[in-house]
């Protein structure tokens, strides 16, 4: 069984937003709904200022608070590391939205609270999620942590990485390359 994860290199991101559009096209989302987003930060003082861009999406946490608070087990994590939502069980109480520290869950038109699924259908066919393939700068690398020869495993061994909000204890499966 694979153990999926993603490595994001924010320094490479241009902020073009193609990842968001690719995701919206993949899941046929309206313009105001998205499963990934870019967070912009300004750093430094004039004249030495720069902008940092952080792609953010569901972290597919190993200890997902959205799963813990879901009353019907509509949110669940599979052995491959992907956090899923079962629309047949979701009541739309939005507990998961209040519990997620990454603010990555959004209700659809039926009130089912959706999020990034790591495009599990694509991945099962051996393909990569569109947010990965569409990126011109290879900001995202997706792969199997249990395969020591996978690109993500090699990069994780080579680079200094961090996760977002580690003090929350969520153990995210998305890693960021430290600048």
């Amino acid at each position: 069984m694979p153990r999926y994860a993603m490595l994001i290199d924010p320094a490479k991101c241009t902020g073009c937003g193609a990842c968001r559009v690719a995701c919206q096209m993949q899941w046929q989302l309206p313009p105001d709904r998205f499963y990934n987003r870019l967070e912009f930060r300004e750093k430094g003082t004039f004249p030495k200022v720069r902008q940092e861009i952080f792609p953010v999406q569901c972290m597919h946490c190993d200890n997902p608070p959205c799963q813990t608070v879901c009353p019907t087990k509509a949110t669940y994590k599979t052995a491959d590391g992907i956090v899923h939502v079962n629309p047949q069980k979701c009541i739309g109480c939005k507990m998961c939205m209040t519990a997620c520290p990454y603010d990555v869950r959004q209700p659809n038109e039926k009130g089912i609270v959706e999020k990034c699924r790591f495009c599990d259908d694509y991945v099962a066919k051996g393909e990569q999620p569109p947010c990965v393939t569409t990126c011109m700068n290879t900001v995202r690398v997706f792969g199997d942590l249990d395969d020591p020869k996978s690109e993500i495993s090699l990069l994780l061994a080579e680079k200094e990485v961090y996760t977002l909000l580690p003090h929350m204890g969520t153990k995210p499966r998305i890693f960021y390359v430290r600048k």
């Binding site: 813990t68 019907t72 509509a74 507990m95």
Partner: peptide, 23 residues
Amino acid sequence: LETPQPLHMIYMLFCPNFSAAIF
């Protein structure tokens, strides 16, 4: 009325999540 899928609450009986305070 707040809950868009109230009928799905039946799953609180069939597959309850005991770690959920809302359950």
